[in-house]
């Protein structure tokens, strides 16, 4: 088995896992299983990107989506107490719509990338050894303004989400963490030095009531 065949085999395995997991996302009965399948899909796609020598994209996908976004998804889905049966009922009814959407997307993607793309071999990396260096330099010099605008849009989205969900209650009780942290032991405890005192003989304990004998 030479190098190219090995890579091809890896590609087929990861692609198959990604497809299977993506199908499970839709078909799984349990929503937690769906979320976990989505995690597996992301992970397999990240592996595919690593195969394509896009190590920054692949690892960033794992860090951002698998490591953070999907954890929150999972968190929310676990807390949901949903009845699964009504959700299942719509499955057959909406299936034609779903298939139509999927076919349109497939056609669009093939239109953009082209079926031929499968045969094109990646050329020599213009960035030399590490595409991370190249990517960082491009992002922070040539594309600095779009990069900052994207960051700003994300921040606005974050603030907007908080503002939408925030409900200030008038009677809510809260702790003043700064005041709590500022407490010193000396304000709460007073240590007293005392001379040892000789214990006086304790008064004889009252006779315990006699237990009735068994």
């Amino acid at each position: 088995m030479n190098h190219a065949t090995l890579q091809m085999a890896c590609f087929v395995v990861f692609a198959a896992v990604a497809l299977g997991a993506a199908l499970t996302v839709v078909l799984a009965k349990n929503t937690v299983h769906s979320v976990l399948s989505l995690v597996l899909t992301f992970f397999s796609v990240a592996c595919l990107w690593l195969l394509a020598q896009a190590e920054f994209l692949g690892l960033a996908l794992v860090v951002v989506y698998v490591g953070a976004v999907m954890v929150l998804f999972l968190f929310v889905v676990m807390m949901l107490d949903i009845d699964l049966e009504p959700m299942r009922e719509g499955f057959i009814r909406y299936l034609p719509v779903g298939i139509a959407a999927a076919v349109i997307m497939l056609v669009e993607m093939l239109g953009i990338i082209g079926i031929k793309a499968f045969d094109i071999q990646a050329g020599p990396n213009p960035a030399g050894e590490s595409n991370i260096e190249w990517l960082g330099e491009a992002l922070f010099t040539h594309f600095l303004l779009p990069f900052e605008i994207a960051a700003l849009i994300l921040t606005v989205g974050l603030v907007a989400a908080v503002a939408l969900a925030l409900r200030v209650r008038t009677f809510s009780k809260h702790q003043n963490a700064a005041a709590q942290s500022a407490v010193r032991a000396g304000e709460r405890i007073r240590l007293v030095k005392m001379a040892a005192v000789v214990a006086v003989a304790p008064a004889p304990a009252p006779e315990p009531a006699k237990e009735p004998q068994a």
């Binding site: 937690v32 976990l36 995690v39 920054f56 860090v63 490591g67 954890v71 050894e129 991370i132």
Partner: peptide
């Protein structure tokens, strides 16, 4: 690896799944 630090971040961020799933 050139992307060693990224790989570290990727792997350590996966560890949380074991804990969440164990709890659930």
């Amino acid at each position: 690896a050139n992307a060693g630090v990224l790989f570290l971040l990727a792997m350590t961020s996966l560890g949380v799944y074991g804990i969440i799933l164990a709890g659930w």
